[in-house]
Nucleic acid binder design. Structure first.
Lengths: 234, 234
DNA sequence: ATAGAAATTAAGTCCAGACAAAACATACGG
DNA sequence: CCGTATGTTTTGTCTGGACTTAATTTCTAT
């Protein structure tokens, strides 16, 4: 009885299906009509319906299984997407002046905790760096980084005086996998001093471990300034 | 000269292209061959190449523009995807016992700051709730929430004694858009007391504003326990 | 009754071809 | 010299058809 819109594009189908889910016409758990049926309703090819439904599945709105069909997810797993830009670009895009300073650089044997985290053997050599990223001369991010020199030997010949390790690594070393962890940490005395904060200030902290096809490349702790907020729309 | 793999699926093409980018055969900024050319190389239809390239573009590896062609991104904007599960499920999945407690419930006129944030008129009525989510009897998350009663009138008749406002809203009110902000905040005296923490402890905090087709639905502040880390692999 | 084989179903992939739309290039008229 | 019309290129979308694959049901022989 439904007067289907003619020549619907896959986006229109997506929107329409989403609307029906939102309007509770198809409540959570409902088994949706098959692709052929929907294709008839929307007056389009099955491939077009397939694309619409596939994208809805990718976005976590519906579940699809061969033979079983398509169901509206009961607990829709909305997923937030954060783009992780270069800190320099983030500062510059905010209309501020970016400045970078390295405060420490040392080749050393990997400490125990790092060996565990990166699965390094106990005598592995790493390059330890500490640096600060400024926005308009006020400290914006403190970066503590360890680079696995056996995976990235050419890092040893880079001074990191002019370019930050994060930016250098992105430009010189691709990666296949990364683990990213966000948490809130209190500023230690050292970090507070470097970032012109009071000791114990709450800092949004990102920890990042990066691999290049199973070889551990680098581990970094990024401490953001108190004022920093990470925002996304979903 | 390249002996292309025959009958490559779109996934194989994706993997192959990605490999060439990783191997620096196609360094950042390179203009890739057009879809027709790639289709010939991979011995497949253009639609198959199109799908592979479209997905790579979605993943932020390449940039595509009509007429201009496809280029390897210079600053690959890797994007982290966080799935935002129900707090109850997160606790239960960690093998812990979930308990919920409401500590405050009051219908009130929206405070000024909330009117601004949700674009409410000054006399708007909201339901203010404060509650705590426990994992194995230790406080895990403190939730402060304001629900716009003109958008969700039926919230007024819900006691929220047994079910948390977040879970109730997900089950009863769909949403079309949400803004999610993460930051680190220091625990106030009140929050510290409720979460059995010392005052000033660093807490990962999420703020969430939700709309249902332009109508503001709810604003929430979620304070996670110190130990909480949000992790994702990319 | 039951384990395994066969049929069925619905999504997943692919193709060859077509047209649309955006973005850029070029030519042309004022 | 400039703005507009026209053309070209490349990606974006769609079609109708085919085959593949995973999961489920049904059948069958034990």
């Amino acid at each position: 009885m439904k007067h289907a819109a003619k020549r619907a594009s896959y986006q229109a189908i997506k929107a329409d299906v989403l609307q029906r889910i939102r309007d509770n016409i198809w409540p959570p758990g409902t088994l949706l009509p098959g692709e052929i049926e929907l294709a008839e309703e929307f007056q389009c090819a099955r491939a077009t319906v397939n694309r619409a439904m596939r994208e809805l599945a990718d976005e976590g709105v519906i579940d699809r299984k061969r033979k079983s069909g398509t169901r509206v997810k009961t607990a829709p797993t909305r997923q937030a997407k954060f783009t992780i830009p270069l800190i320099r670009l983030e500062i510059e895009n905010a209309g501020k002046n970016y400045r970078y300073a390295m405060v420490h650089r040392q080749k050393q044997t990997a400490p125990r905790w790092l060996c565990g985290r990166l699965a390094l053997h106990s005598a592995a050599q790493v390059l330890h760096l500490q640096c600060i990223h400024y926005a308009d001369e006020s400290p914006f991010q403190y970066e503590a980084r360890w680079i696995n020199l056996s995976a990235v030997p050419k890092a040893e010949s880079e001074s990191f005086e002019k370019i930050g390790p994060n930016e250098w690594l992105i430009n010189h070393v691709p990666f296949t996998e990364a683990e990213l962890t966000f948490s809130a940490k209190s500023a230690t005395k050292d970090i507070a001093a470097m970032m012109s904060l009071s000791e114990g200030a709450s800092l949004l902290t990102a920890e990042r471990t990066t691999w290049l096809s199973d070889a551990p490349v680098t581990y970094a702790q990024l401490y953001f300034h108190q004022s920093y907020k990470m925002t996304t729309r979903i």
